[in-house]
C-alpha cells in the first residue's frame, strides 16, 4: 500500500509559455513549502526541458517537426495571441516591465529546490527527441508506470 506524502506530481503536457510558466511556479512554490515535487513532461511539454537553440529530429518528419515546433524556454510562445511570435515578445516585455521572474530563472529555482524533471520516453521516441536535446538536470526518461507511482503517493496531482 502507498501512503500519501507531502508530495506534488505535475504532468506537463502543454508546451505553451503560459502553461509552462504556471507549471514551474506551482512546482517551485510547492518545493519552497517543503513538498517533494516531481514533474513529468510529455508530448508538447518536452519543450519545457529542451535545450535552447537545438534542432530535434532524425528523419524527414522528425526534422520538420523540430523546425516548426522549436523547443527551449526562449522559443515557446503563449497559448493564445502568439501571432507568429509577436505575442511572445509582447508578453515577455510586459512581464519584464512588471518584474516577473523569467522562465529560465524560475526553472533554475525549481531545480535548486530539488524538483525532479522526468521526460516521457514514448513522447521522446515519437518526436525524435533524445537525451542530448534535453537540459542535463532531467532524469532518465520514464514511462507512465513511473509517473503513476509518484502520483499515487502524492497528496496533490496536477495535469497541465
Amino acid at each position: 500500500m502507498f501512503e500519501k506524502k507531502e508530495k506534488l506530481t505535475l504532468v506537463v503536457l502543454s508546451g505553451d509559455l503560459d502553461k509552462v510558466m504556471a507549471s514551474y511556479i506551482i512546482a517551485s512554490g510547492a518545493a519552497a513549502a517543503g513538498m517533494e515535487v516531481v514533474m513529468f513532461f510529455t508530448f508538447w511539454g518536452l519543450k519545457a526541458i529542451q535545450r535552447d537553440g537545438v534542432f530535434t529530429g532524425k528523419g524527414l518528419f522528425g526534422r520538420m517537426l523540430g523546425v516548426m515546433n522549436r523547443g527551449g524556454l526562449n522559443a515557446i510562445g503563449p497559448s493564445r495571441l502568439n501571432m507568429g511570435g509577436m505575442g511572445r515578445w509582447m508578453f515577455k516585455l510586459m512581464m519584464k516591465q512588471k518584474g516577473v521572474t523569467q522562465l529560465p530563472e524560475l526553472r533554475q529555482a525549481a531545480i535548486d529546490l530539488g524538483v525532479k524533471l522526468m521526460p516521457c520516453q514514448m513522447s521522446m521516441d515519437v518526436m525524435e527527441i533524445n537525451c542530448d536535446h534535453l537540459i542535463p538536470e532531467t532524469t532518465e526518461p520514464v514511462g507512465v508506470a513511473t509517473m503513476l507511482e509518484h502520483a499515487k503517493e502524492s497528496s496533490i496531482q496536477f495535469f497541465i
Binding site: 511556479i25 517551485s28 512554490g29 519552497a32 513549502a33 512588471k98 518584474g99 516577473v100 521572474t101 524560475l106 529555482a109 529546490l113
Partner: peptide, 9 residues
C-alpha cells in the same frame, strides 16, 4: 520588486 513565487522561493 520580486513577484510570485520568488518571495516564497
Amino acid at each position: 520588486g520580486l513577484l510570485c513565487p520568488m518571495p516564497v522561493v
